[in-house]
Design a protein around this nucleic acid. Structure first.
Lengths: 145, 145
DNA sequence: AATTCGTTTAGAACAATTCTAATTCCCGCT
DNA sequence: AGCGGGAATTAGAATTGTTCTAAACGAATT
């Protein structure tokens, strides 16, 4: 696992952005790292509460937003519905299983992003690409959910 | 322009699904065809009203949903915020200009979808792929918005 | 003309998120 | 230690986008 993906990285990144490390931010980030099933803010709230019962939902939203700003977490929106959060920083696509509702990370080979970017006509300057598959995954597929 | 992208196609597709052609559905579809700037339901509502002043917002939502069901229109969700609607049926990606907020369609070369699909590990069965670019488009880029 | 069923409608309800204003917390300074 | 100031958290209200509900409408069918 890359060194960046642990809690020490958090205070580092926060400091870099002139922000403070707080218990709320740490627990929110820990929760995302611990169960990488692309939870919604509400789901994060529920999980964080078992550790920090007095945290408020607004703070969970604030913390998630902060983590996204610091590039430690990606916010993902397939379809209408709540935003989901993903601490996987490697370039990856999302596979959305329409049967189970679960979302799987699919690592992207380095050359693919190039190839995808190459379809952009002149004048388009892309800073990021998102790829979302929809379909059905075999039961046997190993996954972090 | 492909024959499917006109209003006659609408009653055809509706009939195929056992649905009726109505003035509301026609105007909603016309509005989407006429100005392809990926409008939200509210924006569609505003445009339709100039032609059909008594239509209700609920009906606009209903019609849009119907058109999506008939595969005449794609619903698109980048980021949180309202769903946007797109009558472009060709395989295409979306380029979201972060400066202007405008969304541009980018046609996909036939081999790209193959290439993209090929990164899926065994066991993943994709029924559709969505590709979203974010970035900045040069002012000079020609576009239907 | 009565029946039926799909469609439209207004408004209420709902879900997700953001805003507001008050409080609390932490840090550096005296 | 005590104080001032900015950052962070908080509860709850407000907002936004969408869906639901129940009534009314309308076109086709008996």
């Amino acid at each position: 696992m890359p060194a960046i993906e642990n809690s020490d990285a958090l205070s580092q990144r926060l400091a870099d952005s002139g922000l403070r490390s707080t218990p709320q931010r740490e627990v929110v980030y820990d929760v995302l790292l611990k169960k990488r099933d692309h939870p919604t803010a509400d789901e994060v709230y529920a999980r964080v509460r078992s550790e920090l019962p007095s945290i408020s939902l607004a703070t969970v939203y604030n913390c998630l937003e902060t983590l996204v700003q610091c590039d430690l977490v990606r916010a993902v929106n397939f379809e209408r519905g709540p935003t989901r959060y993903c601490p996987n920083l490697r370039p990856h696509a999302h596979f959305h299983d329409e049967q189970t509702g679960k979302t799987h990370d699919i690592d992207l080979p380095p050359d693919l992003l190039e190839k995808v970017n190459s379809i952009l006509p002149r004048g388009y300057n892309s800073s990021s690409v998102e790829i979302i598959f929809r379909g059905k995954a075999a039961k046997t597929v190993a996954s972090i959910e």
